[in-house]
Design a protein around this nucleic acid. Structure first.
Lengths: 147, 147
DNA sequence: TATTGTTATACTCTATAACTATA
DNA sequence: TATAGTTATAGAGTATAACAATA
């Protein structure tokens, strides 16, 4: 069987360990979020909107792998809470532009810092050597996740 | 503000990088699973059952953070596919014992190896130095996730 | 009387199909 | 005629409440 170059049997163990660790940590991170008022789909859409900037509902639906009617509903919920603003599209009167508000930024920042605080406290239970290993690995893991 | 001992400002950046990487990688791992016939709740319950061994529906519901009626439904689906067996509880005739079958082990193993293959291929796009960093970090991340 | 598990029912979320308005 | 977004409706999945069996 063909293998990627440089992939050894010991990688198989490491890959499995990495996968289990990532899945479990992500599950715990997801589970510890305190603000339960906003659904996961809403939160994810808002995050994408904040990261990529204003876009049309259709574009956002494609990016979130959700059907347009679902996005209509998601945007409705976000609008109700003042987290996004809908404006007419400058060129095409069929389309609209969804823009995140300042309130959205504050909310996302609060959510992020809460998660980071939790993770920091958890990492505080590791030894200094272990934390150093994670400090080095963090950018690599980030790169891997975005390949 | 009180901080854990040994947590420096540069840790704040690393923690954020780690969190984003973990969440994104987990999302992609979840998304790439091919066998869509079984729901996420069913798969998770089966995994717990396999990891922790046979238990009652109530216990499983608590471990999965799901209400008893939902667990009844989940177990029903697993039973239909021959992945679990229900037996009378030896001591208490109100309770039952849910046991994973040999088929369940095969299915979970197939699912695991598929995910590992995907992750291995992704890691193949990194440099040897980067892979070495992840090899070292994998057990630490695993430990962190299970603290 | 308390507890385990199930059934009945309602609610949330998402999808597909039909509709309205613009292009 | 095609496209962007919405509305109408149906299908999963989950929860709460009521129930049956057992402790």
């Amino acid at each position: 069987m063909p293998e990627s170059p440089g992939v050894s049997p010991q990688d198989a163990v490491a890959v499995n360990t990495l996968r289990v660790g990532v899945m479990r940590l992500a599950r715990r991170l997801r589970h510890q979020r305190v603000d339960r008022s906003l659904g996961l789909a809403e939160l994810s859409a808002l995050g994408t909107l904040y990261r990529c900037g204003a876009m049309t509902p259709g574009e956002l639906a494609r990016k979130e792998h959700v059907q347009p009617p679902s996005m209509t509903r998601i945007i409705g919920q976000l609008q109700e809470r003042g987290l996004v603003r809908l404006e007419p599209h400058p060129e095409d009167r069929r389309q609209k532009t969804v823009t995140p508000t300042e309130q959205a930024e504050a909310m996302l920042e609060a959510s992020r810092s809460q998660s980071n605080a939790w993770l920091t406290e958890l990492a505080g239970q590791l030894s200094e050597e272990e934390r150093e290993i994670l400090r080095t690995a963090a950018p690599v893991l980030h790169k891997l996740a975005h390949l």
